[in-house]
Amino acid sequence: MSEQSIEERAQRFLAVLRHCQVLGMSVESADSKGLTLRLPYAPHIVGSPDTGVIHGGAITTLMDTTCGISTVCVLPEFEICPTLDLRIDYMHPALPGKDVFGFAECYRVTPNIIFTRGYAYQDDPEQPIAHVVGAFMRMGKAVQGGAELKRNIRQGGGA
């Protein structure tokens, strides 16, 4: 599978997630090693009106999405993978006015579970604002109702 097709599939995956469109999230880069998404700074995701710092919930959404879509980096075919669990540790608060990037990679793939890990950062990936681990369930390739979505993500169009 080409690196370009990984990025295209990640883009199509993100495009069908309504809430991610509301937050204006976009694919920054994607290859077989992992996925980076961008969450643009916006006044409507602020959690602390005094400081203008982004709400932890928006960071959680960014990281849940990044970990979830990072499964396309390791799976040859699209599969629906719901989140089993997710843990976020906050290293320091995000700086107001700046976009947040989320990186995630799959570090273990079994027939049933995909283990992912990642981090959120602003300017410097070496100074992450949060570390994340998440486990995802593999529902198999033939989940009811997933056929059309799968086709859209593989081939484009529709979404």
């Binding site: 309504r18 959680t60 629906i80």
Partner: peptide, 24 residues
């Protein structure tokens, strides 16, 4: 809320929205 949907197939709420709601 339509804007909180993450899985268009079911449809289901985005897991991040559920988490953000619980955190708040």
């Amino acid at each position: 809320n339509h804007d909180c949907i993450g899985n268009p197939v079911l449809p289901a709420l985005h897991g991040g929205v559920i988490a953000g709601f619980m955190e708040h």
